[in-house]
């Protein structure tokens, strides 16, 4: 087994032994059970017309995914913040780093292990959600797999950024900065939507710049797009411009140049993390 895979498997084993996986499983059961109950009530309420249900359920799915994307991002930030500095401070890394292993193997192994955990968590929750929504309301989003990939990508972006920060900062500082930047990026995305809807150029530009600096919100909009039924998109576009300012609405899929930039951004953050960790003295 290569050193990267050794560290990755150690990372996964730690998550299992430290009951992170059990916590993920418990949260998933609670989330999906509550949402299943909610979707059942929404779909079987006689005071709501079938047309209204047809609009409410997709929006509820988007709201659920919005909340879940936060859970994924916060989980990514929490686990990545503990990856490097905390292990140096506790003395765990000193015993590993003096073995014939590259520091890049350690960092990439941890990244791979944590990304794998997030991917499994996202895949399981999204699959359960789609199943429960279909079972309770008969609704299936247009492309739930693509939406899940975008939610995961959003989490991996934050994970990579916090991993970079954790090569230099304490776990607390790295985690707090990561979560704060994630929140700021989301708010900037709202500003961009409002700027576009009402023609406020400065807000629109600031939001766009922010989406390039930290692509989490841009990727969230990708998830939203693949959860919206075409009829819902058409209705929003035909409505007053205030409806297009809805931060939970996106009329277009993310452009390939933007997705390419997001991939480059991810690789850049990983490279910076590798360089920073390589140069760090213990």
């Amino acid at each position: 087994m290569s050193p990267v895979l050794t560290i990755a498997s150690l990372t996964v084993r730690e998550a299992v032994r430290r009951r992170l996986v059990a916590a993920f499983a418990l949260i998933s059961v609670v989330l999906v059970s509550l949402s299943g109950w909610g979707f059942y009530k929404l779909s079987h309420n006689t005071s709501i017309t079938s047309g209204e249900t047809g609009l409410a359920v997709p929006q509820a799915v988007i709201l659920f995914m919005f909340m879940f994307s936060f859970v994924v991002a916060l989980s990514a930030s929490a686990i990545a913040s503990l990856a490097i500095s905390a292990e140096i401070d506790s003395g765990v890394l000193q015993t590993v780093i003096t073995r014939p292993i590259r520091r890049s193997d350690i960092l990439l192994g941890k990244w791979l292990g944590m990304t794998g955990l997030l991917a499994a968590y996202t895949a399981i929750v999204c699959s359960l959600l789609v199943g429960v929504v279909d079972w309770t309301s008969g609704y299936v989003p247009p492309d739930p797999a693509a939406a899940a990939v975008f939610v995961l990508a959003e989490g991996v972006m934050l994970l990579t950024l916090v991993l970079l920060l954790s090569t230099r900062l304490s776990a607390l500082a790295a985690g707090v900065i990561g979560v704060a930047l994630f929140g700021i990026a989301w708010l900037a995305g709202v500003a961009e939507t409002l700027g576009a809807a009402f023609g406020i150029r400065a807000m629109h530009t600031a939001g766009q710049i922010s989406q390039y600096l930290l692509p989490t919100d841009g990727l969230w909009h990708g998830a939203v797009f693949y959860l919206e039924p075409p009829a819902f998109v058409a209705q929003q576009l035909a409505g007053p411009r205030g409806e297009q300012a809805d931060p939970f609405f996106t009329s277009t899929a993310p452009a390939w140049p933007y997705l390419t930039w997001a991939a480059i951004w991810l690789v850049l953050m990983l490279l910076l993390g590798l360089i920073s960790f390589q140069r760090r003295e213990l």
Binding site: Q94, T95, R99
Partner: peptide
Amino acid sequence: RRQIGYLPELFRFQSWL
């Protein structure tokens, strides 16, 4: 480093192993 064994002064192993 394959030929070196090192016992650091301050260290911890993975407590969950």
